[in-house]
Design a protein around this nucleic acid. Structure first.
Lengths: 114, 114
DNA sequence: AATAGCAGTTACCTAAAGGTAACCAGTAAA
DNA sequence: TTTACTGGTTACCTTTAGGTAACTGCTATT
């Protein structure tokens, strides 16, 4: 083999796979960003994310809760009050989010600049 | 730190959306990693990515070419020789890839550590 | 002559993601 | 009393992603 290394390639690819298994899809990172920005209530989060629907949001919130990225708290007032808050683990995604933000900004500039 | 600001939330979310429009999905980053590792030929790339199929690979390679992340070169020998190589623009994804790798590694440790 | 590799394409199908709209119970404001 | 808000759920449907397997023309190997 000249220069490319099969093993090295695998060990670069696998962790990306593992990460994408958790945070892939159109909505998960957007929801985390919304909650990290201070949105707590279901409708509040829903309104903060263009085009998302109740059904999709409900499902994705469950996924994120299962992965311990957010916490769902029910305050038993009447009517019931529900709050979604970020777990500390969600902060570990900052580098990913920032890298994607930077790349997205740059990409938009590139596209519009043509 | 965390402010409850609608505008701020949007401007954090939109670039992530833009980025995901280009590099979302199970395969695109894996393909870029494979090509950046030195794999050039169709079958070579295919073999380097577990579980990918010819059909999916062909489609994703077209997408990546359209977004100018990779280049397809046909050498008109006989039989035809085709090479895929990374464009300089693909290098701008390094931060994203590295962030995802780190997070994926850490996440796997977290899951197995329980 | 048969087999295998190359770079894909095609047809067919399933599974997952996502959209649309209606609906629930409870509360509060108009 | 009607309207609207809350946090979702349900049923139904479409779209997209992705898998399976066969097949192409061409060449090189066995």
């Amino acid at each position: 083999m000249i220069k490319h290394n099969h093993t090295e390639c695998r060990s670069a690819m696998m962790p990306v796979r593992d990460a994408l298994d958790v945070i892939s899809g159109k909505w998960k990172l957007q929801i985390i960003i919304s909650i990290q920005s201070g949105n707590k209530r279901f409708r509040e989060i829903e309104r903060s994310i263009p085009k998302i629907t109740s059904k999709v949001l409900a499902k994705e919130l469950k996924d994120l809760e299962e992965h311990q990225l957010i916490k769902r708290t029910v305050y038993d007032e009447s009517p019931v009050l529900v709050e979604y808050t970020p777990m500390p683990y969600a902060e570990t995604l900052q580098d990913v989010i920032i890298a994607l933000q930077k790349w997205g900004l740059n990409h938009r500039k590139k596209i519009l600049g043509k």
